[in-house]
Design a protein around this nucleic acid. Structure first.
Lengths: 270, 270
DNA sequence: AGACATGCTTCCATCCAGTGGAAGTTCTGG
DNA sequence: CCAGAACTTCCACTGGATGGAAGCATGTCT
């Protein structure tokens, strides 16, 4: 998630001592496996883990053995390591992910059936849109999104929706840093983004076109919980066309409302 | 996954000392969150974690703080803890789960659309069927299965298929222990199970009826990889009827074959 | 309100578990 | 067959982890 801040404390200007607790070292080892971008999941050799985690080989060896013993990592025949099934098992039990997914999935399936397009479900996590679920058919457009991916808020449909309904200090902070331009049409100018957010709030829907991936557009809508707060966003990603497809927009709205209702939301107005 | 083997070493017959390494203690804390059965995901207080992990409160406090700092656990307003988003993020990157799921999902969706029944995808892990994916509509039968669940091999459709194609020593070991009877129709007698496994291998399909959950039946088929080995199983779970639905069986077969082909399997015979 | 109980957080002297350099072992490939 | 890289094991040293105890913060009973 970050560079390599291998915390070293230089004592008396001679040797550099590693400050990290045992726990931090164990975590650093897992972090070594965090897939960088839209990349395929990693398998690493012991040495590679040691380098990425900034740990001596022997220490790595011992700690990796602990992970393997527990099931957090698994060792393959060829001597490479990868994330283990135990992590998956615990991971899917994470309440936010599990509850939202379980409730939303039937509606996402409906949306997929009626539109035959990529369907995304994402939440706001830190400064990113975190993709909880993704459904796609056999022949859909190639996308960088995948379950577990983190994508920017200003260049994705779900991201903009999440930002539109986020607390103002989050918006403030997000727009304070310079936003990356992925394609010519990516909107990166803070004031322009703010204007868009207002439109999205007004319309209850976001339309994006050619801002992250060439040739694809998206339509996204907010999901609210019992308290009316926006907790997630659904979207479909389609091949770009010049016309606005009212039918698709309706389908996305229906899906978002369905999930919201299932979460206990009873619309106040609108 | 197990009881509570809080490894204590009694030295000189006086105090009991905890043998576990720091890593083992950290893992014990996460294991405290492993959902017991088909239960809803847990949130625990510090004290509860300490008890379940068999650790002193102050130690638990410190180690839990480490987990929270990393994101493996998260602390709620009410002071309760639950599994954190980071675990989910890493968990979904686990190669087996990720690759299989990505490839299989479109076919599972097709299967769901044609049958409108619960669709399951499971792999063999240890002595259990581990459920990787589950699709269900709005009004499907209530089931205990869920993503990440572990269910017995002898009483579920996917389980029986996985067992049918498992190495003989796995079958041997599995049948060596006494099999739990969930309902009157659950087959628990080793020789009867063996006979069933042979039938499944012959037919390339398993039919189960009222053996795990009252009122529900299932049809399951094997998924093979490039090497021809069975690596997973798909199933649909339906309300029990007296007639064999050839259409449904065909749909399950088609789905299983579709995934197998996508995994690189080119059928040798059959 | 007061008192008791329960649960969480902080502190710190003790000591043993974790550390990592180095030596030994296995694997690779020229 | 040997060099070199990658992995595994060993073990003396030491500083980080430990956990009992005391201090806080809530909740709830009379």
């Amino acid at each position: 998630m970050s560079g390599k801040p291998a915390q070293k404390r230089v004592s008396a200007g001679v040797a550099a001592v590693d400050d990290r607790s045992v726990a931090a070292r164990l975590f650093a080892i897992l972090d070594a496996f965090a897939a960088p971008a839209g990349a395929t999941s990693l398998t690493l050799t012991l040495t590679a883990i040691a380098q990425r985690a900034g740990l001596p080989l022997s220490t790595t060896h011992r700690l990796v053995a602990e992970w393997v013993g527990w099931g957090g990592l698994s060792k393959h025949e060829n001597g490479q390591y990868s994330l283990g099934m135990k992590l998956w098992e615990l991971g899917v039990q994470t309440p936010t992910a599990r509850n939202l997914r379980t409730i939303a999935l039937p509606y996402l399936e409906d949306l997929y059936e009626t539109t035959r397009e990529h369907v995304h479900l994402a939440i706001l996590d830190g400064r990113d849109a975190l993709y909880l679920e993704k459904l796609s058919g056999h022949h859909a457009v190639r996308l960088i999104s995948r379950v577990g991916a983190r994508l920017p808020l200003h260049s994705t449909g779900v991201g903009l929706v999440l930002l539109a309904y986020a607390p103002s200090d989050v918006v403030q902070q997000y727009l304070a840093t310079s936003l990356q331009r992925f394609l010519p049409r990516t909107v990166t100018e803070p004031e322009a983004v703010r204007k868009r957010l207002a439109e999205i709030r007004l319309l209850g829907l976001a339309r994006m076109s050619e801002e992250m991936t060439a040739g694809s557009s998206s339509i996204a809508a907010p999901i609210r919980d019992r308290t009316g707060q926006v907790v997630a966003a659904v979207s479909i990603v389609t091949r770009t066309t010049d016309t606005i497809d009212a039918e698709q927009e309706r389908a996305v709205r229906v899906a978002a409302q369905g999930v919201s209702r299932a979460l206990g939301y009873r619309r106040a107005q609108q």
